[in-house]
Design a binder for these strands. Structure first.
Lengths: 245, 245
DNA sequence: GCACTTAAATTGTCAGACAATTAAACTTCG
DNA sequence: CGAAGTTTAATTGTCTGACAATTTAAGTGC
């Protein structure tokens, strides 16, 4: 396949990179079998544990899967949407939490992207998408719902909105923005008045999509953006005040 | 830290998951040191190679970094934007290529997201962003430029547009959509007439952003969307015709 | 007090072995 | 001959023990 320079530093990382590049460059098709660990160790002139560490790196990125037994081995794996979603969401969440992204920035990004989906969703949403949105609105209206469940439902509502655009690439990119916001949203305490307001806006969005009215959907989303921003800033201010009284 | 159930299957994956969850749940702060490999192997009651495979999985996801020597070890790593970008882009590219996403879908997603950035970029773009865009426009006008270089420049132009929104979260999410399109764009042969048309639209976008005119920017982007779609479909049709003559 | 040496801790790598799993080849019996 | 069961070979998963490389800290001599 490919060899390493004389550089004897971080062998497993080098080997992993070498194989990863081969996959990314399309030199290996989906479901192609990699050489066995023993063969790889001979090819790269390293020990089997080192090869194994390299393969585990690739497995961690969902690039390969392994099977034991005769005619087993490591195989190039088709990256599914579901896995990519999950990966994207954890990375986005981590990125936001580790880099102290402020609520305003995350919120702005999320709603800007959602508004990009709205016109497409107005055209293409199915009855299923609408039903999901209505169901989530109903759930959000239940009294005694915890803040966390309210947020969950909020995410589900917006996910349905985005999925309504019927563009998997869009859904994939949006998932990162919408889901990664959740930890930040969870810091907010939603009073009954807040919830009523949000439910009202959600209803307006659903109504607009039902009527296939992109402009009205956009207007409601715009209002929701402003309102969420307002709630978030109040929550952040309260939080800051508690920390330095 | 945390232990495994009696389940003796895929030990290294289990251990990796256990540690990853601890990091994601915020149980370990950035730069916190994990126990040494020997300690971990005792804690989880497995051998050191198994622990090492688990750690390599985490390293592959940029969750930890390791240092040799006394007071070395594995440390929780702050995920930087640059790394997350790179990760996001390779995943997006792989996802598109492995799942045979058609040009239309990818293109639609990309421009929908870009149009979401345009209004913000019109408000916030700096002279630097404008300068980058102008420079790339100039580069695109050079005669004798290869198709690949033209695409590179196109990506750089659009990246500047997105960065102009001054929202790192937005830039991060957009990077996946814009860069992942490149392999698809590279299938297109850009004639001089195509290029003139695109350069013209780019100029209109840059002019609009310079004038901080969101509506004009949006209009130009909309036209560019249609034109790119048209080029792409022609290229895909030609490609299909070549395959089955 | 400062430069140098030594020691200790830790990851990186290696070699060889055995267990677990799987598919194919082989054998046996109806 | 065919089918069911058995053996065998290939491959990954794990373990043990060892040594090398690297880095920090402690000690030592002047």
């Amino acid at each position: 396949m490919k060899i390493d320079p004389k550089n004897r530093a971080d062998l497993s990382a080098q080997i992993a990179k070498s194989i990863r590049d081969a996959i990314l460059n399309g030199e290996m098709d989906v479901d192609a079998r990699l050489p066995s660990e023993t063969e790889l160790s001979e090819q790269f002139d390293v020990s089997r544990p080192t090869v194994r560490e390299a393969l585990k790196r690739l497995a961690a990125q969902n690039l390969i899967r392994t099977r034991r037994g005769a005619s087993g081995g490591a195989f190039v794996r088709r990256l599914s949407y579901e896995e990519a979603y999950a990966n994207h969401i954890t990375t986005s969440t981590l990125l936001l939490s580790m880099n102290d992204v402020d609520f305003e920035t995350a919120c702005e990004a999320r709603f800007a992207l959602e508004r990009a989906c709205a016109p497409l969703s107005a055209t293409r949403r199915t009855a299923d998408h609408l039903a999901t949105m209505r169901a989530e609105i109903h759930r959000q209206s239940q009294p005694g719902l915890s803040d966390e469940s309210f947020c969950d439902s909020d995410v589900a509502f917006h996910r349905a909105l985005v999925d309504g655009a019927q563009n998997p690439v869009l859904s994939y990119q949006l998932a990162g923005a919408v889901e990664a916001m959740q930890p930040l949203m969870n810091m907010i305490t939603f009073t009954q008045r807040n919830r009523d307001m949000i439910v009202g806006l959600h209803t307006r969005i659903a109504d607009a999509l039902e009527a296939r009215d992109a402009a009205r959907a956009d207007a409601a989303l715009s209002e929701l953006t402003g309102y969420t921003l307002q709630l978030g800033e109040a929550a952040m201010a309260a939080r800051a005040a508690r920390k330095t009284p």
